[in-house]
Amino acid sequence: MRADRWETLVVALLAAATVAASFGVDGFANGSNVAFLLLDVTEIALMALTMTLVVVAAEIDLSVASTLGLCCAVLGRLWTAGLPIETIMPICLVTGALAGALNGLLVTRLGLPSLAVTIGTFALYRGLAYVVLGDQAVADLPPAYTSLATQAIGPIPLMTLLVAVLAVAAGILLHATGLGRAITALGANEEAAYFAGIRVRRIKFWLFVASGAMAGLASLVFTFRYASARADNGVGLELAVVAAVLLGGVSIFGGRGTLAGVVAAVLLLAVVRNALILADVANEVLNVVTGVLLVASVLAPNLKVRLERKPVQ
């Protein structure tokens, strides 16, 4: 597939950035920094996994970070109300899944474009988060879980292992199962997929549910990691997630993309960011670098296609 080369490039860039940072930036190549880097990217990585599936299906979910915020707020509210945390956690996952289900219903039943729907629910879910929890921060969370969220085995945080397991599962799902093939096909040509008996709407619906549930899972990691449940948890993360997915070579038009590419892109963005921060580069420059990478990622495959496709008359 054509996209392969781009993903190879992302992996090469990741390797180059890692090597350059190791030699050029003091404090990059030590165990605690690597652990911090990996841990810091957990929520983005988790949500990027399901976002990859959603974008390959030619849809998008911009409400993930707001869903995360809503789940955090629910967690904080129920914890202050005295519910045991073991009850609250599944409730958070269900809340995320329901938020995703609403997105899915609006997209598949009413035929609305997911871009518009999830911009709407982006505002809606964040608003609900404030309704649920208000401005307060719930901080007295059980230490067993907050320390679990930051624990590491050597330089590898526990949460990174969780990401790795889920990434492998998502990779298998997208690249080696019938469902994954169906997602790719319907993203490339929805009508032909429907004519081939693929249940287009049903699959899309469940992709949105999965995306919401994953945001719910990310909300647990986020809350325990920072030991703080707030309504504004994770503001702006959706852009980082979408950025990683596109940089990873997933076509914004659907039908094309690999999970390996997205994982590499998540790490690439994290390494660049971390190295620049360590090198005391100003925050503005940091954003410029991330932006350039993104534009390049969207541009490069397009240029390539243009060069390859000679006009046919």
Binding site: A176, G178, A182, T184, A185, A188, A192, I198, G255, R256
Partner: peptide, 20 residues
């Protein structure tokens, strides 16, 4: 699905849930 290969197009009518 014009972007997909010959074998994958032929395979589209025979997708199962599990591993391919």
């Amino acid at each position: 699905v014009m972007d997909l290969s010959i074998e994958r197009n032929i395979g589209l009518t025979n997708l199962r849930w599990g591993l391919l």
